[in-house]
Simulated scan of single mutants.
Amino acid sequence: MSHQLGSLVSAILNRHFGEIVQKVGDDLFSFGARPVAAIAKTTEIPRIKVVESLRTLLKYDLVTFEPSKNEVVADYKIVPDNILLLMRYPRYLLQIKSKHGSEAEMIVEEVLQRGCVTATNLLVTLARKYKDDRV
């Protein structure tokens, strides 16, 4: 089961975020909680790219972090259950549209695509999209 779950998590990460994030996710899935330096060393990805990948995964709540034993460095840990939920996004959008209409669907879709967004930015983005659709 673990090998199959790892393959599925890897495929989902690659589809949604690309190859670099996939490699970081694979490393975390294989080795468990690890600091940035260890991830960069085993994946042979530059440290800055590893940090950007972890930032993306944290934004979508697909990775958590906690202090390591020396409490100076953070250990990052992947959350496979949250990654599996990415596959449900189309179903979420269908349910929202059927129950609340297309405007609600646009709001939920934007939040799902960005991971997190302020209400102001959300409204401005949706107003621009709505204006572009009408013209």
Rank of each mutant, 00 (worst) to 15 (best):
L86F: 02
I83V: 10
I12E: 00
V73S: 09
I20R: 13
M1L: 08
A38H: 06
L62D: 02
L94V: 07
F31H: 15
K59D: 11
K97F: 07
P46I: 04
A104T: 01
A119R: 14
L123H: 10
Y60Q: 02
I83T: 01
E109D: 14
L5Y: 00
G115Q: 03
I45G: 01
R114M: 07
P67C: 05
L85K: 08
P35M: 07
L123I: 14
Y76W: 03
E105W: 10
R114W: 02
A11W: 10
E71T: 11
N82V: 02
K23L: 07
Y76C: 00
Q113E: 15
R134P: 03
L84G: 02
A11P: 04
E44A: 13
K23T: 01
R91T: 10
S68H: 03
I45W: 00
I96V: 15
K77Q: 11
V9E: 04
Y89D: 07
I107E: 12
N70D: 13
R128M: 15
K49I: 06
R34Y: 03
T42R: 10
N121V: 08
I12L: 08
A11S: 14
V73D: 08
V50E: 00
K99D: 14
E105Q: 13
K131L: 14
L122M: 11
G32N: 09
K69F: 11
T120G: 13
M106N: 15
H16I: 07
S10H: 10
I39M: 02
G32I: 10
E105L: 08
I48G: 11
T125N: 15
M87G: 05
Q22F: 05
E66H: 11
E110Q: 12
F31S: 14
K23V: 01
L8W: 07
E105I: 05
S68F: 04
K77Y: 06
S98A: 13
H3I: 15
M87I: 10
K77W: 03
G101N: 01
K23W: 02
P67F: 09
I20N: 08
K59Q: 13
L62V: 06
T56H: 06
P80C: 02
R34W: 03
T64R: 07
K23M: 06
A40T: 03
L13N: 02
D75E: 10
I96N: 06
K49V: 06
T42N: 09
Q22V: 06
E103L: 13
V36K: 01
K129G: 12
R88V: 05
Q95I: 14
S53R: 04
D132N: 14
Q95D: 11
S68A: 09
A33N: 02
I48C: 08
E105H: 10
Y130R: 15
M106E: 13
Y130F: 13
H16E: 13
S2G: 14
Y92Q: 07
D75R: 07
T43H: 01
L85C: 04
L57W: 01
P35Q: 09
Q4G: 10
D133T: 14
S7G: 12
K77A: 07
L58T: 05
P46G: 05
L86Y: 00
L58R: 07
I45L: 09
Q113G: 12
G6T: 04
V72H: 11
L94Y: 07
Q22T: 08
R15W: 09
P46H: 08
R55V: 03
S98V: 09
G32P: 04
E52D: 15
V135R: 15
I39N: 00
S102P: 04
V36Q: 02
L126R: 09
L58Y: 04
G18Y: 04
S102W: 08
I107K: 12
I96Q: 05
